[in-house]
């Protein structure tokens, strides 16, 4: 009984550590996917719930980050497919961006709006490659697609973002 109790406590402690380490990252990732704050929070909670159930079976086959991102991506995909989600217009204007009150950087905001306006498959590649600094190989593993698919999506995303990127460069 005592051993079972210790194992359960260990798992809870591990969950708390994972939540502290990765919650903010996953919240922003889920927001980029879902473009809705509350849906992103629900997705993060669902992600850690699934991770908690699967924790005993995780043997370090990949990094914790890749593992959690993989779960989060699947949670977001399920949410996008089901229920009321797809009916709502989720285009995000710069005014609707979740900015901290003190932020003033119009070019960055415009570029983020452009990223959020990308089709999902480009948005996820850009997010994981540039913002999460993952390699093409890691992204392919996290998304369950071929590495070549990731490379093509990144190239196409850059093309779509070109105007917004060049606007930012001019103002550097």
């Amino acid at each position: 009984m005592q051993e079972a109790g210790s194992a359960a406590d260990g798992k809870k402690e591990r969950l708390a550590e994972l939540a502290e380490a990765w919650q903010d990252t996953l919240l922003k990732l889920c927001y980029v996917y879902l473009r809705d704050r509350e849906a992103a929070r629900d997705a993060v909670q669902e992600t850690f719930l699934k991770a908690y159930w699967a924790m005993d079976r995780f043997r370090g086959e990949c990094s914790e980050k890749t593992w959690l991102i993989r779960i989060a991506v699947n949670v977001c995909r399920s949410m996008r497919r089901s229920a009321w989600f797809r009916r709502v217009d989720r285009r995000i204007t710069p005014e609707e961006m979740p900015l901290a009150a003190e932020v003033r950087d119009d070019e960055a905001v415009d570029l983020m709006a452009a990223v959020l306006a990308l089709p999902k498959r480009y948005r996820e590649a850009v997010t994981l490659y540039y913002w999460q600094d993952m390699t093409v190989q890691e992204i392919a593993a996290a998304l369950g697609v071929a590495q070549s698919t990731v490379s093509v999506r990144l190239r196409q995303a850059r093309e779509k973002l070109r105007a917004a990127l060049e606007g930012g460069e001019e103002n550097e």
């Binding site: 809870k12 969950l15 708390a16 939540a19 502290e20 919650q23 903010d24 919240l27 922003k28 927001y31 980029v32 704050r37 992103a40 929070r41 993060v44 909670q45 850690f48 961006m97 979740p98 900015l99 901290a100 009150a101 932020v103 950087d105 960055a108 905001v109 570029l111 983020m112 709006a113 990223v115 959020l116 850009v126 997010t127 540039y130 913002w131 973002l161 990127l165 930012g168």
Partner: peptide, 19 residues
């Protein structure tokens, strides 16, 4: 792009009671 993410999502904060 990193700057865009840092600025654009700067208002998103985690839930201290998530665990």
């Amino acid at each position: 792009i990193c700057r865009a993410f840092d600025v654009g999502l700067s208002g998103l904060k985690g839930d201290p009671f998530l665990a």
